[in-house]
Design a protein around this nucleic acid. Structure first.
Length: 466
RNA sequence: GGCGCGGUAGCCAAGUGGUAAGGCAGAGGUCUGCAAAACCUUUACUCGCGGGUUCGAUUCCCGCCCGCGCCUCCA
């Protein structure tokens, strides 16, 4: 069986291949840069990264666009409160976001696009929607008229049949004709920043940026549109309404949504005190790889319960794989034998790949790797792990790490150099030979304090960075 | 109320109509100057509860209970 994904649109797992040539046109909803992104946001962004990497591993080219929402109500509110321009206010959080992504080893999309740099295109799209009769004006704002789009609800599978128009119109939006209508262009309020345009002064509504930027860079029909599950409605539903009204074509063939992240079993919220940014977690001394591993190890369609126990487990699990890698690199293995172990590596790889092909089942893919690691370790202990199996075993780890990307430790700023380590390791070995264990242990402790672990093995001394 | 997801060992978690992957933690052991690493043994006669279909269900159907999310701020 080949690559297949669950499609929110059809509520089924479907075979996946890009529609045109070999390149996957992927659009993912990025951050709104009004504050630091939190760990829940990064659950989704990590999912996007895994999706990218696995598509590439399966031989597809990528054209991935992610937006940065750098204008919205919260941003305006905060910027105005701090007396800053929108650009000044969002710049810092955009940079912080990119730094956080780099820490988590999230690949940069082919294009990272900002809403404020596409205002003319959005205005043009709104004009087109107006010409096609999908809009109405109210107090200087422009709204999308959902009545004109009968398929509304097809993504979120909400039946609006029984909902009375205007039944839940809230106070601020008294001017909407239908509760489902949404704003395309917002007239400015007193003191708010705005753009002067052909459809009047104002700023874009939230949804229009994604439709416009996706179509501009990827064409009228995307292969995959992905986001957090909470965006399904209304954001993605509205994107469909706008885009399909604009082009008359299906907006995205596959819709993929990452489930929510919970913290200690509850939704993150500031009032519960369980609200964490990536920075909060790293400050507590956890490695970014552990965060990445934890976020990646639970399949994306299952709610992920983020706990500090889980984070510790993730760190230990990574160590197990790193130790195995080190053993492959530093061990000595017999030249004879091998057939069965070559078969086992091939089997592990097949299990790994088939699990990921199955809607990115990362948990099952990890099991395939760990099972192999245990068997290989057992054979190494017995001295029966053949030299011929080393290269394929390393290839398995490479394939694993091309996706999970956790094997290389994040270097400390003040890291001790390799040569200094080697010098100390040599001195310790000499001390040991002279049976000066006190000195040997002191050196080992010193290295440990500086983040280096020494291990004596049958094949000699080896070291690793923590 | 509507829509969606889920309830599997102490924790995280995969999975299939035929008798429960993997990781972490715990206990015991092997190895070792001491460690570390690694390995071995051990932790679910059972997969929320009650019915049904079946030779057989954790896996299918029905009902119920519980948790979470969305229902126009939200990854």
């Amino acid at each position: 069986m080949g690559l297949r994904f669950y499609n929110t649109l059809t509520q089924r797992v479907e075979d996946f291949a890009p529609a045109r040539d070999n390149t996957v046109r992927l659009y993912t909803c990025g951050p709104t840069v009004y504050s630091y992104a939190h760990i829940g946001n990064f659950r989704s962004f990590t999912f996007f990264d895994l999706l990218r990497r696995w598509l590439r591993a399966r031989g597809f080219g990528l054209d991935h666009v992610m937006n940065i929402t750098d204008v919205d109500d919260k941003i305006i509110r905060n910027a105005v409160a701090e007396g800053k321009s929108l650009a000044d206010y969002t710049r810092a959080y955009t940079e912080a976001f990119l730094e956080d992504c780099a820490k988590l080893r999230l690949e940069q999309p082919e294009r990272l696009v900002k809403a404020t740099e596409h205002i003319p295109q959005m205005v043009h799209a709104i004009e087109t929607l107006r010409d096609k009769g999908f809009t109405y004006d109210s107090d200087g704002s422009v709204y999308y008229r959902i009545q004109k789009f009968p398929e509304y609800g097809k993504l979120s599978h909400i039946d609006f049949g029984g909902m009375r128009a205007g039944a839940r119109v809230d106070v601020d939006e008294y001017d909407k004709a239908d509760a489902r209508d949404f704003v395309l262009w917002k007239a400015p309020k007193e003191g708010e920043p705005f753009w002067e345009t052909g459809i009047g002064p104002g700023r874009p509504g939230w949804h229009i940026e994604c439709s416009v930027m996706a179509i501009e860079y990827l064409g009228e029909t995307l292969d995959i549109h992905a986001g957090g599950i909470d965006l399904t409605f209304p954001h993605h539903e509205n994107e469909i309404a706008q885009s399909e009204a604009l082009t008359g074509k299906q907006f995205a063939r596959f819709w993929m949504h990452a489930e929510f992240l919970l913290v200690e079993g509850q939704k993150m919220s500031k009032s519960l005190g369980n609200f964490y940014t990536l920075r909060d977690i790293l400050e507590r001394g956890y490695a970014p790889e552990a965060v990445r591993y934890l976020l990646a190890s639970v399949p994306y369609r299952k709610a992920l319960n983020f706990t500090f126990d889980g984070l510790k487990s993730a760190a230990v699990a990574i160590d197990r794989l790193r130790n195995f890698q080190l053993r492959l690199e530093s061990g000595r293995f017999p030249e004879n034998g091998g057939g069965a172990f070559l078969d086992r590596v091939a089997e592990a790889r097949r299990g790994f790949e088939e699990s990921l092909d199955d809607d990115l089942n990362t948990a099952e893919a990890l099991a395939a790797v760990f099972e192999y690691v245990r068997e290989a370790n057992t054979a190494m202990d017995a001295g029966t792990f053949p030299a011929a199996a080393v290269a394929p075993a390393r290839a398995l780890l490479e394939e694993f790490d091309a996706l999970f990307d956790v094997l290389k430790p994040t270097a400390a700023v003040d890291a001790i150099s390799d040569t200094e380590i080697e010098t100390l390791v040599t001195e310790r070995s000499q001390s040991k030979k002279a049976r000066n264990f006190a000195r040997a242990d002191a050196i080992r402790q010193e290295l440990l304090d500086r983040g280096v672990v020494i291990e004596d093995t049958r094949e000699g001394v080896r070291w690793k960075r923590k």
